[in-house]
């Protein structure tokens, strides 16, 4: 998380792209420019916090909206700020519906642009944080032994130790020990915590 964010600017208009890169640079951001959606897709995307400043209307190749969709399919979760010279309402609605952070009309004032980028970056940061937490949780969950998972599953379903011991044909004391092990591994402090974690894991599994 210590890494500085990187802003990706995709616009086919050389002059505008250069100007935007200059502005972002002067505002203290690291920024990288691409002349088309294709250029952007061909570049390896570093795993850094950042966001995408995307021209909605680019000739030839994928449009901004198409690029956004492609990125989502690839699981790239970069927040997108759209820029348009047309001020076209229908496109903007579609862009926002598909999760764009902002939709800005050219010419855009630096303050507006930087605020939008800031929002995008903080969203990215939150997302990255959430992703990191989820990854940690998943890793912790993965570290559970099969016996511990069995105990975990039953605890979060609200089964009592006695019943768990009976079902797994182990002693109630062993159940308690496994339960403490699970709590420790998953970093939970209470049964309620475990329940929340289970819910989260289910969610992750579903999204996964």
């Amino acid at each position: 998380m210590s890494e500085a964010p990187l802003v990706h600017v995709v616009d086919d208009d050389d002059s505008l792209r250069t100007a935007l890169l200059r502005l972002l640079g002067a505002a203290g951001y690291e920024a990288r420019g691409y002349a088309s959606a294709g250029d952007f897709l061909l570049q390896p995307l570093p795993d850094r916090p950042g966001c995408l400043l995307l021209d909605l209307n680019m000739p030839g190749g994928p449009s901004g909206l198409e690029l956004q969709a492609a990125l989502r399919r690839q699981g790239v979760a970069l927040p997108v700020v759209f820029l348009t010279g047309y001020g076209d309402v229908a496109s903007s609605v579609r862009a926002l519906q598909t999760g764009a952070v902002d939709f800005l009309s050219k010419p855009v004032e630096g303050e507006t642009l930087l605020k939008a980028l800031q929002r995008a970056l903080s969203r990215d940061a939150r997302a990255r944080q959430a992703r990191a937490q989820a990854a940690e949780l998943t890793a912790r969950f993965a570290s559970l032994s099969s016996r511990e998972r069995q105990v975990f599953d039953r605890v979060v379903m609200g089964s009592l130790n006695k019943l768990i011991a009976f079902e797994l044909a182990i002693s109630e004391r062993t159940v308690k020990a496994l339960r403490a092990q699970v709590m420790h591994k998953l970093g939970a402090h209470s049964v309620a915590d475990l329940g929340r974690l289970a819910e989260r894991l289910r969610q992750l599994a579903k999204d996964g």
Binding site: L20, R22, Y86, K106, P107
Partner: peptide, 24 residues
Amino acid sequence: ASIAHQINQPLGAILANAEAAELM
């Protein structure tokens, strides 16, 4: 719409350049 685009492109660039210069 397309005319607006054609004018907004350079205007956008001008604005961005000017603000970049200001920041610099």
